[in-house]
Design a protein around this nucleic acid. Structure first.
Length: 325
DNA sequence: CTCTCGGTGTATACGATCAT
DNA sequence: ATGATCGTATACACCGAGAG
């Protein structure tokens, strides 16, 4: 029986032609690899030695059984299956393998396998739907905004202290300690993600220029009648459609302005960074992994862990139906 | 000098969102 | 609605600057 080597480079190439992002390709390739390697007894086999004959229905069922064993969420199983199906589809149309002409028998076998997996996938689909319905019915209320913002309240005194240090500084001399800078970064991004319910990605990818533009622009009145500025985060690294508007009242505008004038400018000058992001680490690098830092902040102040996603649920829950979107 | 902690990279599970 | 893809949350090992 003819067996074929399969290079994952071909799969990558194929995905790139379909304009899939590099991260997306890595993601699905990792899923496929786990799916095919970890449970079909292929441990120790390199991708170069891979043969299509290794794919089988019993292998797929073994994977399902394994997932059941380790109690993986059904949605994840479905996700893996989707990726696996895409992988198989690719094999059957792969120009290097040319199964249709080179090995009609193997081509038919894989087509048959695809149909089987497609059927099982339908079962997974309805299972996920049921799961979703049940989850929606028994979904607990998200924490109240007060609970969400609890960490901001308990850390407020320290934050004041940090900002006072900043206020007293001129723009020369050494910057604050790295611990203090990290704390200020954590606190302000926690305010954005927990206090305003924005995505962590927006805090991470906000540009200095976006704050400046808002700061130099017009002040607006909020629905409560107090003046505030709106930072429109549009230059989003990951997804343009995920823009957001950050509304800052005078208190936060003052803090953001201090941050911008002292931390940003001093660190920029000393560390000569090459990026334009608003939040800056003491080493001049881009402040990222906001969700990790929020977690650490909550741990440090011994308050319950609440993620930015949960915070969004909390804020959405308290909006009129019409405004939720 | 030692050791804490800020920060990085990677793998994995899975929720969210886009296009159709 | 559905399939495909993107983004987030989390765990963990590791590095190294700099606080004490």
């Amino acid at each position: 029986m003819t067996q074929f080597c399969l290079s994952f480079q071909n799969f990558r190439l194929h995905q790139r032609k379909a304009h899939t992002s590099e991260a997306g390709i890595n993601n699905s390739l990792a899923d496929v690899t786990r799916m095919t390697w970890k449970r079909i007894g292929l441990q120790g086999i390199t991708t170069q030695d891979f043969k299509t004959t290794y794919l089988s229905l019993s292998g797929y069922e073994a994977v399902l059984a394994w997932f059941e064993d380790i109690d993986v969420n059904l949605k994840t199983v479905l996700n893996y299956t989707k990726n696996f199906m895409q992988f198989m589809k690719y094999i059957n149309i792969d120009m290097d393998l040319l199964l249709v002409s080179n090995d009609q028998r193997e081509y038919n076998r894989l087509t048959c396998l695809q149909v089987h997996i497609s059927n099982m996938r339908s079962g997974l689909d309805s299972g996920v739907f049921e799961l979703h319905k049940r989850q929606m019915n028994s979904k607990p209320m998200p924490p109240t905004p007060t609970e969400v913002k609890w960490v901001l309240a308990v850390a407020k005194a320290d934050f004041y202290k940090g900002m006072d240090e900043l206020r007293k500084k001129d723009d020369s001399g050494p910057i604050l300690t790295k611990t203090r800078i990290a704390f200020i970064n954590r606190y302000i991004t926690a305010y954005l993600c927990l206090g305003q319910g924005i995505h962590v990605g927006e805090a991470e990818n906000m540009y200095s220029s976006e704050f400046q533009a808002a700061y130099n622009g017009e002040w607006m009145l909020s629905d409560r009648g107090e003046p505030h500025i709106v930072v429109h985060v549009a230059n989003h690294k990951t997804n343009v459609t995920q823009d957001c508007r950050i509304a800052l009242n005078p208190y936060w505008t003052d803090n953001f302005d201090l941050y911008f004038r002292y931390l940003c400018t001093i660190i920029f000058r000393l560390k000569n960074p090459t990026h334009p992001y608003f939040f800056t680490q003491s080493d001049g690098h881009h402040f990222r992994k906001v969700s990790d830092w929020i977690k650490k902040l909550q741990k440090q102040y011994k308050v319950p862990k609440i993620t930015s996603s949960t915070a969004r649920c909390s804020w959405v829950e308290r909006r009129p139906e019409a405004h939720r979107e």
